[in-house]
Design a protein around this nucleic acid. Structure first.
Length: 352
DNA sequence: CTTCCACCGGAACCGTGGGAAA
DNA sequence: TTTCCCACGGTTCCGGTGGAAG
């Protein structure tokens, strides 16, 4: 609709972190292991489930999606789906979004269907077909029983992903034993050279030739400390800024401006998903640096009065704290009454 | 030592919202 | 339209616990 010829960006999608490239740069070892684990599907045999862990931006999500799509393209009878457990933490939501991806959402009503029934529908839909289910951010699961149920299903391969190496450490022993045979795969942070190669690859497909200098790519690779997500976001933001303003190539200034934006956003993004009360509680904790639960509620009530909000009861506040700790927005040290809440390390210095 | 009290957290319960069936 | 159903967030209730007071 607007006659607008891009001078910088050739294909913006390529620079987004959700983009799945047509070829994977580095990660050959992990790729092979994952393929090997899924290979039995080709012979209609049971695949081996996996637990994939590693820091943010190490390619866990990207490669899981890549492999499952590759597999389905190869063998059309194999279904696959991806669920982010932060967005869909309850058993109901997970099953619902699986069914949605399998194209059965029309036949079920979103409300009014019991969770058990969703599982039956899922089983029926599968019949003798095989599928791979990716559960990303699996540490955000509200009830780990679904892992037990899914792991015991024939024809289902699980790929459980988490930043937290010990995400499966705390699950119920019964769930634990059903996951005894999962293959644990570690994704270490990328090296400088690897990040550089990833950036070069994406720049080649996503940007027009010559708009970003080699030295600039190196710079971005160096400051992103092994996190591909950060690197790509810096490149994307810088490219977008250049496209919107100067349109003569990406300048160092564009990159410099993009850097802080990317680093701030992680925790900010997380707090956006909180409700009013959770956000107030989070605010109190981050302001006081460290706070005991008993001191927190009065503070919370004060904050409510100031904001003209009806406070929720103390028990509900404790539930909010549970949630915040699960989201890893706050750190809970100690048990029960001796617990102390604080925000993560990087904000520890601030406060009054 | 016993009693009391504040706080924690599990479990049952309730109100609400919204889609489906009657 | 009304009625029914169910997930979900919040509330109520309550038993357990350990420190403080008697």
């Amino acid at each position: 609709m607007y006659e607008f010829e891009n001078k910088i960006i050739k294909d913006g999608r390529v620079l987004k972190e959700q983009f799945i490239p047509s070829r994977i740069v580095h990660r050959d070892g992990q790729l092979k292991v994952i393929r090997d684990n899924l290979r039995p599907l080709l012979k209609r045999q049971q695949p081996r489930s996996m637990f994939i862990h590693g820091s943010p931006g190490t390619g866990k999500t990207c490669i899981s999606k890549y492999v499952t799509e590759e597999l389905s393209a190869h063998v059309s009878s194999v279904l696959h789906c991806y669920v982010n457990c932060w967005l869909y933490p309850s058993t109901f939501k997970i099953l619902f979004s699986i069914l949605q991806e399998f194209g059965v959402s029309m036949s079920i009503h979103r409300k009014g269907t019991p969770t058990d029934e969703l599982f039956d529908i899922f089983r029926k839909r599968l019949q003798d077909r095989q599928c791979v289910i990716v559960l990303d951010e699996v540490d955000q699961l509200e009830d780990d029983k679904i892992l037990y149920d899914l792991a015991r299903m024939e024809n289902v391969g699980l790929m459980l992903i988490s930043n937290d190496e010990h995400a499966l450490g705390g699950v119920d022993p019964r769930v634990r034993s059903s996951l005894a045979s999962v293959d644990t795969i570690h994704f270490p942070p990328y090296s400088f050279e690897e990040i550089r190669d990833i950036l070069r690859d994406r720049a080649e497909w996503g940007l027009l030739p010559g708009v970003v200098a080699k030295a600039q790519v190196d710079w971005i690779a160096r400051v992103s400390s092994g996190d591909a997500r950060i690197a790509l976001n810096v490149l994307r933001l810088a490219a977008e800024a250049a496209e919107n303003k100067d349109r003569e190539g990406i300048s160092d200034e564009h990159i410099r401006a993009a850097l802080p934006k990317v680093h701030v956003s992680e925790k900010e993004k997380a707090t956006e998903r909180l409700n009013e009360h959770q956000r107030m509680i989070y605010g109190i904790i981050s302001q006081s640096g460290e706070i005991k639960p008993e001191d927190l509620y009065p503070e919370y009530e004060k904050a409510c009065k100031k904001n003209g909000v009806d406070p929720i009861v103390d028990r509900s506040v404790r539930k909010c704290l549970e949630k915040l700790a699960q989201y890893k927005l706050v750190l809970a040290k100690g048990e029960g009454r001796w617990r102390v809440y604080s925000v993560g390390k990087e904000a520890a210095g601030e406060g009054s």
